[in-house]
């Protein structure tokens, strides 16, 4: 699924996001950057998907149905096999305390909506490389 982007070819990204428009957008920009995209629309599905096939980077929305972003993050960091999974958290909740919580849970990058596409792509690619 190479698409002539600047990033590492074939970086596999999982998007956990319940807003279809945002999913569509992220899919569009990350595919252009050469990533391989899967998406889920709620927290439980996200955890199940990670367990089934861990991605290189997880793009995680905070406000998710069923299990929210924090719980997903906790589950990831608490699991034996993929605790090191890089996570980029996206949230429309722009408050500082949310960032603090996320960082204490071990998020790698915290991005507030609305975001710049480039910022997301850069963060994801950087994490995918490591």
């Amino acid at each position: 699924m190479a698409n002539g982007g600047t990033g590492k070819l074939g970086a596999r990204i999982l998007i956990a996001e319940d807003e279809p428009n945002i999913v569509e957008l992220l899919t569009f920009v990350l595919q252009r950057a050469g990533c391989e995209i899967r998406s889920v629309s709620d927290g439980e599905a996200a955890i199940a998907e990670i367990r089934r096939d861990p991605p290189d980077v997880l793009l995680l929305d905070l406000m998710l149905p069923r299990k929210d972003g924090y719980e997903v993050l906790k589950a990831v960091r608490g699991s034996a096999t993929h605790a090191a999974l890089p996570v980029v958290m996206l949230t429309a909740k722009g408050q500082e305390k949310d960032r603090k919580v996320a960082e204490s849970l071990g998020v790698d990058v915290f991005i507030t909506k609305p975001f710049s596409n480039q910022e997301v792509v850069d963060s994801v690619l950087k994490l995918a490389r490591t």
Binding site: V29, A92, K113, P114
Partner: peptide
């Protein structure tokens, strides 16, 4: 803030 940010994100990013 959250509710406003969501559509704004779409608008800005698209």
């Amino acid at each position: 803030s959250h509710e406003l940010r969501t559509p704004m994100t779409s608008i800005r990013s698209f």
